[in-house]
């Protein structure tokens, strides 16, 4: 008799694993990373590599400090820290000094993820917190150091990158008419100042479509988030529909909506809860953008992450066979009617 598995049912399992899902996310992030390197050159690649190395390295070192076996660590490596590292690198500017991605990625993995218990236990998204950390800790380099991609210069061998304000900042402070950039440029990221991974919307959308096809995320969630943000910006600017496309195509909204807000750990786990979450996220993003006049997608997601446990506890699906909302209302009306009748009879 050879070895047999004895377990609780079911005895056959689906093919999906955490590792597989995370590898899918890494693959989906690649187009945007490559476009970032094309636009911003070697510096961007360096930032991406440093933040990935920082993230994966600090996870391994943390586990080693906990005296785990190195073989076990490598076997249990589930690519979540690589995803966080890639995302962090993508939402930094290519002009940041080398220590910014390293310190931010160590902070994001050690403080935000591992100290809370590792994969699945963090209450806020590590990559977003890492970005916010960089934004606050290295304020001077983060705000002034935007690079504008200059493809012509890269192709001709020069690495001339100019600095300037991002189109989103211009739009928020001076209005949509003064952006001075075409929608196509915003969509492709050509000539757009910004972070490494967030300028080429086409590459992000390609990655998003891959995730949807692989059933890693539902198509409706990024669409709701982006759509609500766009509509809210329109409403906040006196129903000027000229704001719709520029506001969804600029800044880190696409990156945040497709890859960061849809992070499993820090978003609600039921469909009902997700509708609430993504709609609220869109509203919060548009409001903060309007009144703070800076890029706030990461702050909005960070803020809404904190509401996820509340949403999870209180928005639950109707159990199969339980009365529907309509039934409950009908029941209440019937009860009220019978009560009224009883009252009348008493009066009579």
């Amino acid at each position: 008799m050879n070895k047999v598995y004895v377990s609780d049912s079911p005895h056959v399992r689906g093919a999906r694993t955490t590792k597989g899902i995370m590898i899918d996310v890494c693959i989906a992030l690649l187009p945007a990373c490559i476009m970032g390197c094309v636009y911003f050159g070697f510096k961007a690649l360096l930032v991406l590599v440093l933040s990935c190395v920082g993230a994966v390295g600090s996870e391994i070192v943390y586990n080693l400090i906990l005296r785990k076996n190195i073989k076990e660590i490598l076997r249990n490596f589930d690519f979540t820290s690589l995803v966080s590292g890639m995302l962090l690198g993508m939402c930094l500017s290519s002009n940041v000094p080398w220590y910014v991605p390293i310190i931010s990625s160590i902070f994001m993995i050690i403080v935000v993820k591992m100290l809370f218990g590792g994969t699945g236990k963090n209450i806020v998204n590590p990559a977003i917190t890492g970005r916010v950390f960089a934004f606050i800790a290295f304020q001077s380099v983060m705000i002034s150091g935007w690079a504008t991609p200059n493809i012509g210069a890269i192709l001709s061998g020069g690495s001339e990158v100019t600095s300037g304000a991002t189109p989103l900042t211009i739009m928020l402070s001076d209005g949509v008419d003064n952006m001075g950039i075409s929608l196509l440029d915003l969509f492709l990221g050509t000539g757009v100042t910004g972070c490494i991974g967030e300028t080429c919307k086409l590459a992000l959308i390609v990655g998003g479509i891959y995730l949807v096809c692989r059933k890693v995320i539902g198509w409706q969630w990024p669409v709701i988030y982006v759509g609500v943000t766009g509509l809210m910006s329109v409403a906040l600017n006196g129903f000027n529909f000229g704001y719709f496309l520029p506001s969804i195509l600029s800044g880190g909204l696409m990156l945040g909506a497709i890859f960061m807000a849809t992070d499993y750990v820090t978003s609600p786990f039921t469909d009902k809860g997700r509708y609430v979450y993504y709609i609220a996220l869109g509203i919060v993003t548009a409001l903060l953008r309007k009144y703070t006049r800076i890029e706030v997608v990461s702050f909005a997601i960070l803020l809404m992450n904190l509401f996820v446990p509340l949403i999870n506890a209180h928005i639950r699906p109707r159990i199969f066979g339980a009365p529907t909302l309509l039934d409950k209302i009908k029941d209440k009306i019937a009860k009220m009617k019978s009560k009224k009748q009883a009252d009348k009879e008493v009066q009579g």
């Binding site: 589930d78 218990g117 994969t119 699945g120 499993y264 978003s267 609600p268 039921t270």
Partner: peptide, 11 residues
């Protein structure tokens, strides 16, 4: 491995 709250079980 730890739950990643993907929500597949509920779905």
């Amino acid at each position: 491995s730890p739950c990643i709250s993907c929500g597949r079980c509920a779905s």
